[in-house]
Simulated scan of single mutants.
Amino acid sequence: MRSLSQLLDRVKMDHGNSKIVLSQTRIGIFLSRGKDNANGCRNLKGVYGLKRSGGYSGRATVPMLWDVEKKEVGCNESYDIIEFFNSGLNGLARNPGLDLSPKELKGKIGEWNGVIYPNINNGVYRCGFAQSQDAYDSAVNGLFTTLEVVEDHLTTSRYLCGDTLTLADVCLFTTLIRFDAVYNVLFKCTKKKLIEYPNLHGYLRDIYQMPKVAETCNFSAIMDGYYKVLFPLNPGSICPVMPSGCEHEVLNTPHNRESLSLVNKTMHVSVA
């Protein structure tokens, strides 16, 4: 997807503390709990509790975009942060011409996000943290009904918005890549595994095999970040064996979804 290779010498990554800080810029990205070198806080709640960030004392959730010069929260809305990285760092990007949110597709992207976020992205969390059977049943039914809708759509469409990869696909991918390893087991999303959906799993492999995407999918960090951190859901912090469908060799098998783009383009030419 977006190549930000020219930022690599300015990015400090610490998987142990689950944070990323972009030095030599005004940007800090806090992904989960960990020692904060910028503020000396040991968790995100501590950062929010600083007077210079408003002295907020409520629930602290990730992600957070932190202004390291002004010492204040820049943004904590996931999609706004994604939009920022799509176009806000063009001056530093190696491939600034790549736009995953083109003007002509913003309407479709918004429509898909309106379906995907509540039912899939947030849906898995509603399943995992449900406090009643009714709440769980509602969440799990919404999740798998929506997965079926997307599965059907991907029968004839390479990506959510057609032949073009967009931010809607990025948002969906981040949940799909964790589905069988984490959400299916830990969050009780057990009706079906993602690998049982041929179109969705092919779509997942299609994006995974794009240049530089696989190297961002650290399954060891993903497993540790859920099974060893979410104490209420896994008191023993026991990390299960990785499902076979999540292995690199499986995710790297041919997906043949490029044929959908070719078919759609051929049909368009024929009609014209």
Rank of each mutant, 00 (worst) to 15 (best):
E258C: 09
G245H: 10
V229S: 05
V241Q: 04
P254A: 07
K265R: 13
V263Q: 10
L251D: 02
V250E: 09
P232E: 08
N256E: 10
S237L: 13
N264D: 11
L262S: 03
K265Q: 15
G236F: 05
C246R: 09
P235S: 09
L251F: 07
E249Q: 14
N264L: 06
L230T: 01
M242T: 10
V263I: 09
F231C: 02
V241W: 00
I238W: 00
P235D: 11
E258A: 09
N234P: 01
N264T: 06
P235A: 09
V250S: 01
T266E: 14
P240Q: 07
H248N: 08
I238A: 02
V229M: 06
C239W: 00
N264G: 06
N256K: 07
R257Y: 12
V250Q: 05
K228R: 15
G236D: 14
L233Y: 03
K265I: 08
N264S: 14
N234Q: 09
M242Q: 13
V263T: 04
N256V: 02
L230W: 06
K265H: 11
V263G: 00
L262D: 04
P232I: 08
G236W: 04
S237I: 01
F231G: 01
F231M: 05
L262V: 14
L260F: 04
E247L: 07
L230H: 14
P232N: 07
I238P: 01
N256C: 08
G236S: 15
T253W: 00
N252G: 11
S261A: 10
T253Q: 15
V241F: 02
N234A: 04
L260P: 02
S244R: 14
R257S: 10
L260V: 03
C246D: 08
P243A: 02
E258W: 12
I238S: 02
N252E: 07
T266L: 15
V229Q: 04
M267D: 12
P235C: 11
F231H: 11
H255M: 10
T266G: 08
L262P: 00
F231S: 06
K228Q: 15
S259K: 13
C239H: 00
L233W: 01
L262Y: 10
R257H: 12
N264C: 07
P232H: 08
T266K: 14
K265Y: 05
K265G: 00
